[in-house]
């Protein structure tokens, strides 16, 4: 079970990194994880249906460039905007009256959020530490129920024909 590697096009890396900052309210920068998370988003997208992956990435390219059209952007792409302005631009798409635009914003935010909050450092920082819990309850289960566990494992493979011959 090996996860496939990132295929985020190099040209979209600045826009993706800017988006990571917006989705995480700059927390990714404070932890020094922005570039890593942007690459992880590319990994998340690899097994997606091709049309969905293409749509999300084309949407990002469009979003990045269309930001230039906003007067407050002064001709700059999304990836070059200040954090405050970038957030405002993304918010406009998030609340867009156009359903596919809104859907894109929610979809791309979803994969960015997954990539960031699944990072071990971030999970630890918010108090999610399941490994120790799993080890503890696994040991308890084995200690208290070993006989039952073994008995059921035997039952699973014991002959028990559905139809008597």
């Amino acid at each position: 079970m090996v996860a496939r590697s990132s295929t985020l096009p190099r040209g979209l890396v600045p826009a993706m990194e800017a988006l990571v900052r917006v989705v995480t309210a700059g927390e990714s920068d404070r932890r020094g994880l922005t570039a890593e998370v942007a690459q992880a988003v590319g990994e998340v997208l690899v097994p997606f249906p091709a049309h969905l992956r293409a749509g999300l990435l084309a949407g990002l390219a469009t979003f990045d460039q269309l930001a230039r059209m906003r007067p407050s952007s002064r001709g700059r792409a999304f990836s070059r905007l200040s954090p405050e302005l970038a957030e405002r631009v993304f918010k406009a798409w998030w609340h867009s009256p156009i359903f596919p635009v809104r859907q894109w914003a929610k979809g791309i935010k979803g994969v960015v959020a997954l990539a960031y909050w699944d990072h071990p450092e971030v999970r630890g920082a918010i108090g999610f530490a399941p490994e120790g819990w799993i080890a503890h309850v696994t040991e308890r289960r084995q200690r208290d129920y070993a006989a039952d566990i073994a008995a059921h494992a035997e039952r699973v493979t014991a002959p028990n024909p559905l139809v008597s011959k």
């Binding site: 995480t24 309210a25 399941p130």
Partner: peptide, 20 residues
């Protein structure tokens, strides 16, 4: 788990950070 909760929560930015 946190990644999935953050993915599906109806927020981004500061609101999402507060929730998470």
């Amino acid at each position: 788990p946190p990644g999935i909760l953050a993915m599906t929560a109806p927020h981004f930015g500061r609101d999402l950070l507060d929730l998470m």
